[in-house]
């Protein structure tokens, strides 16, 4: 009895010791600004003068008096629902392909990773216009095969969001690399013994690769949901939310309210709601994980 108590205490101390760098950072550097955001969400704050308490005013206005808000919510969900699965699918496929034994893989991996490091460059904005503009590459290619396109893909409300979806899918480098690292952690012996048992390509994938990769798939899924719902950079540098607000995604709209029109309180309220919504969806994925994520170690018993 006492020994268990002692062991529990030791474990608690060890645990807190290990997470202490993060915990200290969280309590000193992050928590205060976050509480600041929470406080500001109940105020009218124009950044320059002291915040005034207005209770739930920002939230009421957001939910009932701002049609652009709901349009932005819709656009964000659309973007995330389409782009997250596609991006993960491509990342996993390419990681599998680049994991097979071939020559020149180092080179290909670098090539496939390149779009991701171009991600935040201003040059990307210019390039994307060059590709999806009226005078762009896509229309030129279509003209080559005899289709005369009058579309300005990036400026048309029907297609603009798709150009951004393509952009983030094209930048699948980071989940790809994580999948690659995950694939490398699967012991070759497992494949070998499965091979002896008669398993081939697709079966190996479903019997061994998927289950053993599931912790990493889970990680990528959670992170991409978070990134998808809080996407900012791509619409900010390329479409600035247009045309007709079809790419005015949540985090972008929030930023523009807060910084460009000095409604920091409103922006903080928006951020808080975003936090809750993202946490809700992440929570669902976490809850579901016991059904499909397979861990070698159920729990840290040590």
């Amino acid at each position: 009895m006492d020994r268990r108590l002692l062991e529990n205490r030791r474990r608690a101390i060890a645990g807190y010791l290990f997470i202490s760098p993060w915990l200290i950072g969280f309590l000193t550097l992050t928590l205060l600004p976050i509480l600041g955001v929470v406080y500001l969400s109940f105020t009218k704050y124009d950044i320059f003068t002291a915040p005034q308490w207005i209770g739930l005013g920002n939230f009421v206005r957001m939910f009932t008096g701002d049609p652009r808000y709901w349009k932005s919510v819709g656009a964000t969900f659309y973007f995330a629902i389409v782009s997250v699965p596609l991006k993960l699918f491509f990342a996993l496929m390419v990681a599998m392909i680049l994991n097979a034994p071939h020559r020149g893989l180092d080179f290909y991996r670098a090539v496939y990773y390149t779009p991701s490091i171009l991600g935040t460059s201003v040059a990307v904005a210019v390039m994307w216009r060059e590709i999806f503009g009226f005078d762009g590459l896509i229309n030129a290619l279509l003209a080559n095969i005899g289709i005369r396109s009058e579309m300005a893909w990036l400026g048309d409300p029907r297609t603009a969001v798709w150009t951004l979806i393509l952009l983030v899918i094209w930048q699948f480098g980071s989940p790809m690399l994580i999948f690659l690292a995950g694939l490398k952690q699967i012991p070759d012996e497992l494949y070998e013994s499965a091979h002896i048992d008669g398993a081939r390509g697709v079966r190996k994938f479903f019997w061994i690769t998927l289950p053993l990769l599931s912790p990493v798939i889970f990680f990528n899924l959670v992170m991409q949901i978070i990134f998808g719902l809080t996407v900012f950079t791509q619409p900010f540098i390329i479409t600035q939310g247009g045309p007709l607000d079809t790419t005015n995604f949540y985090a972008l709209y929030l930023y523009r309210r807060a910084f460009e029109t000095f409604q920091m309180g409103y922006g903080a309220a928006m951020a808080l709601v975003l936090l809750l919504v993202v946490a809700f969806f992440t929570g669902i994925v976490f809850k579901s994980s016991s059904l499909w994520v397979f861990y070698e170690s159920k729990e840290g018993k040590a």
Partner: peptide, 12 residues
């Protein structure tokens, strides 16, 4: 901490 946009935390 990953779910709160960084932009909103700048000022605080």
């Amino acid at each position: 901490t990953l779910m709160l946009p960084v932009q909103i935390q700048i000022i605080p």
